[in-house]
Structure formats: structure tokens, C-alpha cells
Simulated scan of single mutants.
Amino acid sequence: MTISVGDKLPEATFMTMTDKGPAPLPSSELFGGKTVVLFALPGAFTPTCSAKHVPSYLANAEALKAKGVDTIACLSVNDAFVMGAWGKDQGVGDKIVMLADGSADFTKKLGLDLDLSGFGMGLRSKRYALIAKDGKVEALSVEPNPSALDVSSAEAVLKQL
């Protein structure tokens, strides 16, 4: 079952890359008491993700913050090393928190997992964006096609805030 608007986000622990190496980030710490825009995508360094999805959030980071967003986070079913390297490659700095959901635990709990084994990519995340306030889903937009970027871009999220 897929998570819905009004649902509380499940407990999970993400991994993030720090100067000292990978570090855990509990979902309660990420979402608790904050307005968070979480966007997820099938894979780091993939064409749509690198050329369009992350850049849309970088270009609109200030506009999102101006609408009350405390944290912008990018999630992928990759490890912290990949997400850290991709964040550097994309120049996210402190504008976007790069979250590794390496075993897809959070992704599966949301019901937003995507089997791309036929393409040699294994279990991944669907492409989506959600707005959470204090850990509760306020808006959720899932792309029907994983290579499309119609409802989960920063521009689309801005219209929902």
C-alpha cells in the first residue's frame, strides 16, 4: 500500500555523507517539527535525475525556503558514498540533503519502490515529491513514468506550497 496525504511518515534511518564519512540520520530528526520537501528518484547519476530533477531543486531552493520549507532532501536507493559523490558533482552544498536509502527500507515502507531489475538496476524508488509538515504527508506527487519529470519537479512543488 502506498502512503497517502494525511499519513505519518514511517520511522527509518537514512545515511548521509559527512566530512568524517557516512553518518545515520533518523527520519524523526529529518522531519520532526519541520516543513520538508522530499524528492526521490530512481538513481544517482542517471540522465533525468542529474540533468533535470536535482537542478530544478537547486535553481528553486531559495523560492522553496521563502515559502516556509526548512529542509529540501533528495532520496535515492543508493549508498551514502554514491549520494555524497553525486551531491558534490551536482554542487548541492547545504541547499539539499542527500539521503541514502541503501536497502530501500524507507522506500518500501512508503510503498514507492520500483523494480528495475529488467534494466539491470534492481530495486529502486519511484520518482516522486512530497511535502511533509512535522512528519505528516501534506502533499504527494508520484510520476507515472520514472523517466518523466512532470509532477515532482521543484516548480510543481512550489505550486503546491
Rank of each mutant, 00 (worst) to 15 (best):
residue 1 M to C: 08
residue 1 M to K: 15
residue 1 M to T: 15
residue 3 I to A: 15
residue 4 S to G: 07
residue 4 S to F: 07
residue 6 G to Q: 04
residue 7 D to W: 12
residue 9 L to Q: 00
residue 9 L to T: 02
residue 9 L to P: 00
residue 11 E to D: 14
residue 14 F to Y: 08
residue 15 M to K: 13
residue 17 M to F: 04
residue 17 M to N: 03
residue 18 T to D: 07
residue 19 D to T: 13
residue 21 G to M: 07
residue 25 L to D: 03
residue 27 S to P: 04
residue 28 S to L: 10
residue 29 E to L: 11
residue 30 L to G: 00
residue 30 L to E: 00
residue 30 L to P: 01
residue 30 L to S: 00
residue 31 F to K: 03
residue 33 G to I: 05
residue 36 V to S: 00
residue 36 V to R: 00
residue 38 L to K: 00
residue 39 F to E: 03
residue 40 A to H: 03
residue 41 L to T: 13
residue 41 L to F: 15
residue 42 P to W: 03
residue 44 A to L: 10
residue 45 F to A: 08
residue 45 F to R: 06
residue 46 T to M: 01
residue 47 P to E: 03
residue 49 C to T: 11
residue 49 C to A: 13
residue 50 S to C: 11
residue 51 A to G: 14
residue 53 H to L: 11
residue 55 P to G: 05
residue 55 P to F: 03
residue 55 P to R: 12
residue 56 S to G: 04
residue 58 L to Y: 00
residue 60 N to Y: 06
residue 61 A to P: 01
residue 63 A to F: 08
residue 63 A to V: 14
residue 64 L to K: 05
residue 66 A to F: 03
residue 67 K to Y: 11
residue 70 D to Y: 05
residue 73 A to C: 11
residue 75 L to V: 12
residue 75 L to C: 13
residue 76 S to C: 11
residue 76 S to A: 12
residue 79 D to E: 06
residue 80 A to D: 02
residue 84 G to N: 02
residue 86 W to M: 02
residue 87 G to C: 09
residue 88 K to L: 14
residue 89 D to C: 07
residue 89 D to S: 11
residue 89 D to R: 11
residue 91 G to I: 07
residue 91 G to Y: 05
residue 95 K to Y: 02
residue 96 I to C: 01
residue 97 V to P: 00
residue 98 M to I: 12
residue 98 M to C: 09
residue 100 A to E: 06
residue 102 G to H: 08
residue 102 G to I: 04
residue 102 G to M: 06
residue 102 G to E: 06
residue 102 G to Q: 11
residue 104 A to C: 05
residue 105 D to I: 10
residue 107 T to A: 05
residue 109 K to E: 07
residue 111 G to K: 08
residue 112 L to Q: 01
residue 112 L to K: 01
residue 113 D to E: 15
residue 115 D to S: 10
residue 115 D to G: 07
residue 117 S to F: 05
residue 117 S to A: 11
residue 118 G to H: 09
residue 120 G to P: 04
residue 121 M to I: 07
residue 122 G to R: 09
residue 124 R to E: 08
residue 124 R to A: 03
residue 125 S to C: 15
residue 125 S to D: 10
residue 127 R to F: 02
residue 127 R to H: 06
residue 130 L to K: 04
residue 131 I to M: 10
residue 132 A to N: 06
residue 134 D to G: 14
residue 135 G to V: 08
residue 136 K to P: 10
residue 136 K to C: 09
residue 136 K to L: 10
residue 138 E to I: 10
residue 141 S to F: 13
residue 141 S to K: 13
residue 142 V to C: 15
residue 142 V to Q: 14
residue 142 V to R: 08
residue 143 E to I: 01
residue 144 P to K: 15
residue 145 N to Y: 07
residue 147 S to M: 13
residue 148 A to T: 15
residue 150 D to I: 14
residue 150 D to P: 05
residue 151 V to N: 07
residue 153 S to R: 06
residue 153 S to W: 04
residue 155 E to S: 04
residue 156 A to S: 13
residue 159 K to M: 11
residue 161 L to P: 09
